[in-house]
């Protein structure tokens, strides 16, 4: 939809109008076949290393026994875990989610470096599972992601913590936000009883994407879960935004040790990605 403004330029505007629903009534066989093949290709697959596979095969409930699952969505959340958690102890990758979609055509094989949705575990205390997710997951794959991942994890005794990045521009408030960003807001499911270390997400703000899919799954299936969303006005990963996630780990401090200082090498690598590549002055 396009709209001309008072000054004459044409803007495309977001419309809430809804198309009349007349989809795939007259689809021929070939179209249907192509569509079903694409659907098959877009399926979300969770793959585990042989050790975890054995555990899954031997467990009675066909699920991993975890006390905590930490899901980090977005470059800052994932970067925070890389710099403060995963660098410090003996965390090793134990699985990944392979996702194929329009922005993610390459992701496939298990535990490869380009796979950007990876699970980590500590060798000596495997009760905490960490998932770093920086790849794009399409709208139709979000629900599936939650279903597939949670089908591998035993629901009893599980607590879920989600860290998620969000742009400050998405935050709706009547107050001025200029000096406060980045900041943290929380959302919790009905069964989550622990203390929350930041304000709750105010109405009318909502969360979407993988974070929403995970907390919705937890709410519906009665798993205690909390989501910490960091609102930042920097588009690229940065150390200040990463630091905002620190309070989220207060409840997990018994199980996960945070480094006092971030691992500088990891941080450098993460932040260098966003350095301007072609700038007239560099």
């Amino acid at each position: 939809m396009q709209m001309a403004t008072f000054f004459g330029e044409v803007l495309s505007v977001y419309s809430r109008a809804v198309e009349e629903d007349e989809e795939d009534d007259h689809e021929n066989e070939e179209d249907q076949q192509i569509r079903s093949e694409i659907e098959e290709k877009r399926k979300v697959h969770v793959e585990w290393c042989s050790e975890v596979k054995n555990e899954l095969a031997t467990s009675a409930e066909k699920g991993l026994h975890c006390s905590d699952l930490v899901v980090a969505v977005g470059p800052n959340a994932a970067g925070f875990l890389s710099a403060y958690v995963l660098s410090s102890e003996i965390w090793s990758p134990v699985g990944s989610v392979s996702i194929w979609n329009e922005r993610n055509p390459g992701s496939g094989a298990m535990l490869q470096s380009e796979s950007s949705c990876v699970f980590y575990r500590q060798k000596d205390s495997p009760s905490v599972l960490i998932c770093q997710c920086t790849c794009y997951i399409a709208e139709d794959q979000l629900f599936q992601w939650a279903e597939s991942v949670f089908s591998c994890i035993e629901k009893r005794g599980l607590n879920v913590t989600v860290l998620s990045d969000c742009s400050l521009a998405e935050f709706k408030t009547t107050e001025s936000m200029s000096s406060t960003s980045p900041f943290l807001r929380a959302l919790k499911t009905g069964l989550y009883r622990s203390q929350i270390s930041c304000p709750l997400l105010e109405q009318p703000n909502i969360v979407t994407g993988l974070a929403a899919a995970v907390v919705s799954h937890c709410q519906v299936h009665q798993i205690p879960a909390v989501l910490y969303q960091s609102y930042s006005d920097v588009i690229t990963p940065d150390s200040v935004t990463m630091e905002t996630y620190k309070p989220a780990f207060l409840n997990l401090s018994r199980l996960i040790k945070l480094d006092a200082n971030p691992n500088a090498d990891v941080l450098k690598k993460l932040i260098r990605i966003s350095d301007p590549q072609s700038n007239m002055y560099t």
Partner: peptide, 16 residues
């Protein structure tokens, strides 16, 4: 209760 389905785009928020 909830209608929990893959047909709708996931979203979550606090009590409206």
């Amino acid at each position: 209760g909830y209608i929990h389905t893959d047909c709708l785009i996931p979203m979550a928020g606090n009590d409206p």
